[in-house]
């Protein structure tokens, strides 16, 4: 299913957060949304699952405006992996993953054997089946993130939205997650911070700054050291990985700050 953001603008509390962003995501493609903190990545994703309403422009799924779709139907189409789940009242991992089945049912009724099967299968795919009976609040950041992905998988829509899916994961699980989402044949849109992960896994990347789209296209064409320098305000250069023959990006603080500690690109 293709996803089109058409000149989407969002204003929150009088402040423009997105300015006329247009991104066309072809069916089955994996598109990474990149940009510094506060550049509008999450907000762009939110307009897709109706987390917020565009003040201008529209978001369409195969041409249908998401605002015109019934909410439940939209949730069956667009599965979302959020960063966090609120745990004031804690659920078990299984209960949380089963919530992914909610859009497929009415608001009351038992979970079917089918739901249960889908939920356990989703947990197995994210390598977290052993967590099934744990309380979500007890999990580590990375475990939680894998469970949140399982919930999105159980939601089982043709479009998968990931908001910074790897920020708590160890390197092995980062690579596995990025690989996993590319094996579904679903349309995937992910806000990412790791530029090298984006280069190796995304079909296209959209680079944002201050709520506006700066560049869109295949990652190797887009993520040049010049662009990275301009958008992220760091020095960047390509270095060659002798094993794969691919170039990877290496970063450094911009010139006159050699004595200060490294600032990381990781999420704030």
């Amino acid at each position: 299913m293709r996803v089109d953001f058409e000149s989407v603008s969002v204003t929150l509390g009088g402040t423009p957060v997105l300015r006329e962003v247009s991104v066309a995501v072809p069916s089955g493609h994996f598109v990474g949304i990149l940009g510094p903190n506060g550049s509008g990545k999450s907000t762009l994703l939110r307009t897709l699952y109706r987390g917020c309403r565009p003040s201008a422009g529209r978001v369409t799924l195969d041409g249908d405006d998401v605002l015109g779709m019934p909410r439940r139907e939209l949730a069956r189409t667009v599965a979302v992996m959020l960063q966090e789940s609120s745990t004031e009242f804690d659920l078990t991992v299984l209960e949380l993953v089963l919530l992914g089945r909610a859009p497929h049912h009415g608001s009351f009724g038992r979970d079917t054997a089918d739901d249960l099967h889908i939920a356990t299968e989703a947990l197995r795919r994210v390598d977290s089946l052993e967590l099934i009976d744990r309380m979500v609040g007890e999990l580590s950041g990375g475990q939680k993130q894998r469970v949140m992905l399982a919930r999105a998988l159980a939601q089982n829509g043709p479009v998968l939205v990931l908001d910074e899916p790897t920020n708590h994961l160890d390197i092995s699980h980062q690579l596995e997650l990025m690989h996993l989402v590319t094996t579904f044949g679903r349309t995937v849109i992910a806000a990412l911070h790791d530029l090298n992960l984006a280069v190796t896994h995304c079909d296209e990347v959209a680079v944002m700054r201050d709520g506006a789209l700066v560049a869109f296209g295949p990652p190797r064409d887009i993520l040049t050291p010049e662009l990275v320098r301009e958008v992220f305000a760091v020095d960047a250069r390509h270095v060659l990985d002798p094993a794969s023959g691919d170039s990877v990006l290496a970063f450094a603080r911009p010139a006159p700050s050699a004595h200060r500690p490294e600032r990381t690109l990781e999420n704030s």
């Binding site: 939110r46 699952y49 109706r50 987390g51 019934p70 909410r71 439940r72 139907e73 939209l74 949730a75 069956r76 667009v78 979302v80 959020l82 966090e84 789940s85 609120s86 004031e88 009242f89 659920l91 209960e95 949380l96 919530l99 992914g100 909610a102 859009p103 049912h105 009415g106 608001s107 009351f108 009724g109 939601q155 939205v161």
Partner: peptide, 24 residues
């Protein structure tokens, strides 16, 4: 409340999360 039980479960996980699960 019986007709809203599943949506209430979704609400436990947060407003944003409930929205993404199709709850108004």
């Amino acid at each position: 409340v019986a007709t809203q039980a599943r949506s209430m479960n979704a609400l436990l996980t947060g407003d944003e999360s409930a929205t993404s699960l199709g709850v108004n």
